[in-house]
């Protein structure tokens, strides 16, 4: 059963609706004691990374999250929180991944936020992307991205520059796109995570 880490950043209706459609069981994690009841976790998040970090700090859950040994998936800002730093709010973050979240450079040919369906290319073999053809489209909406890093980047997307569509380190995973809004392949990815 998936424990969804609740810290007050964004609504999770679409995420839980997707899990319901897939028949994946989930519950809510509000306190450290709640963590025990689950075998994997999702850290959701939309909005401002700096503000989200303050809310997450307010829960007191950060040391316990860093110590997790079970599969843990951050989505969008939930993924960015796992990096060391974000330019959004000049904020130090949880630092599970020693890489940075940066703002897209302004470019006359590219609009920001990066909004819509873009291609994702897996760079490593990992069950998270099982049965998902390389170059499949996923739905994005974000103005900040996680820098590309060959050690941690599990999948990449190109918009203005190459960035981390997905990151992976031990039991920790992150995706910048919204699997709950990314059609069939998004649902496949959630299903894959539930089986890791």
């Amino acid at each position: 059963m998936i424990g969804i880490i609740r810290y007050g950043a964004g609504n999770i209706f679409s995420l839980t609706a997707a899990l319901d459609r897939l028949g994946i069981a989930y519950g809510m994690v509000h306190t450290e004691a709640d963590l025990e009841g689950f075998d994997r976790y999702i850290i959701p998040g939309v909005g401002h990374a700096g503000a989200a970090m303050q809310k997450l700090q307010g829960t007191g859950l950060i040391p316990a999250i860093k110590a997790l040994k079970k599969p843990t998936l951050g989505i969008c800002v939930g993924m960015q929180l796992m990096t060391a730093y974000s330019e959004e709010g000049d904020a130090d973050l949880v630092n599970i991944f020693p890489i940075k979240t940066l703002k897209f450079a302004s470019d006359a040919d590219f609009k920001v936020p990066h909004t819509g369906w873009n291609q994702v290319f897996a760079e490593k073999d990992n069950p998270l992307f099982r049965d998902i053809p390389n170059g499949s489209h996923f739905y994005y909406v974000h103005s900040y991205f996680i820098e590309y890093n060959p050690l941690y980047t599990l999948a990449s997307t190109n918009y203005i520059n190459n960035f981390s569509a997905s990151i992976w380190h031990n039991n920790f995973y992150g995706v910048q796109f919204h699997p709950e809004k990314s059609g069939t392949y998004g649902e496949t990815l959630l299903k894959n995570f539930s089986n890791i």
Binding site: R21, Y139, V141, E180, K181, S182, G183, T184
Partner: peptide
């Protein structure tokens, strides 16, 4: 909106 969000997997 709730009914749509429950059923639909696109934005």
């Amino acid at each position: 909106v709730k009914a749509v969000a429950r059923q639909i997997n696109i934005p």
